[in-house]
Design a binder for these strands. Sequence first.
DNA 1: CTAACAGTTGAACAATTGTTCATTTGTTTG
DNA 2: CAAACAAATGAACAATTGTTCAACTGTTAG
Lengths: 137, 137
Amino acid sequence: MEKKEAKTLPYESDVCEASYVDQDKVLSVLRGMKNESVMQRIAETFKVLGDPTRTKIIYALSSAELCVCDLASLLATTRSAISHQLRILRNMRLVKYRKEGKMVFYSLDDGHIRNLFNECLRHIEEEEYDRYDTGTS
Amino acid sequence: MEKKEAKTLPYESDVCEASYVDQDKVLSVLRGMKNESVMQRIAETFKVLGDPTRTKIIYALSSAELCVCDLASLLATTRSAISHQLRILRNMRLVKYRKEGKMVFYSLDDGHIRNLFNECLRHIEEEEYDRYDTGTS
DNA sequence: CTAACAGTTGAACAATTGTTCATTTGTTTG
DNA sequence: CAAACAAATGAACAATTGTTCAACTGTTAG
């Protein structure tokens, strides 16, 4: 039970335990939190959408069904790089595919992804607007 | 002008240039694409939302205004780690802050972020549903 | 069958990223 | 002023990530 004296703590301890935390507020937020695995899944989804190459693939597929070679040409990169990224998108069920001979055509898996994209775009545009709006008044 | 013989190309060249690309389709998609900097901004936004710690911070802030110490307590991590992540969220204008004495209270910057979050959640829930729905025809 | 091609994949490498540790800044209080 | 505390920050480190290179699978056409 050795109690550490305050003096022996020159900087913060590992985890914020002691300080003036608003316990009630924190507990209330904690209760409203989705469970860990859902949070993990959300983070993962955003992360997958957060790579420039994948972002562009998704955007391209939101306007047409395309094969690997089309995408490579469109994004000026190799088929290999595209293929690696498509696998990640496939695993996250963000895109689906259809085989036709030796070609494989990819498209978006569902409409939510398009919505996510548009919502993000709206945020960015509003951000842009705000930047020029501040200063008046 | 040394022309390489086909035989000296045992595998694909750097970029998909030659092959059977549907030029019309690709050009049409390309025209519909947002410009590079917008795409970059979208990717960046998703990326920032795509780290588990930041995802949780955002989610927590979507239900209450909190200080660094509250967040550290809530996520069971150090104030330093939270502070580093908050800077990133600040830079992307996803959160705003308000100083009160030596405390700093953070909150979401605008409503779009909440929408983005909810849209993502809906995608995940539908995904979950689909997984148990497949098999029947 | 063989050559050519679309796509996939594994290994390796460089680049980026998140956390920790330690220090610093700025505010409040004794 | 000095001690105490919230928060911010820089450096360092381990872990993760995206691309490239090279090889491989499977399909089509001569």
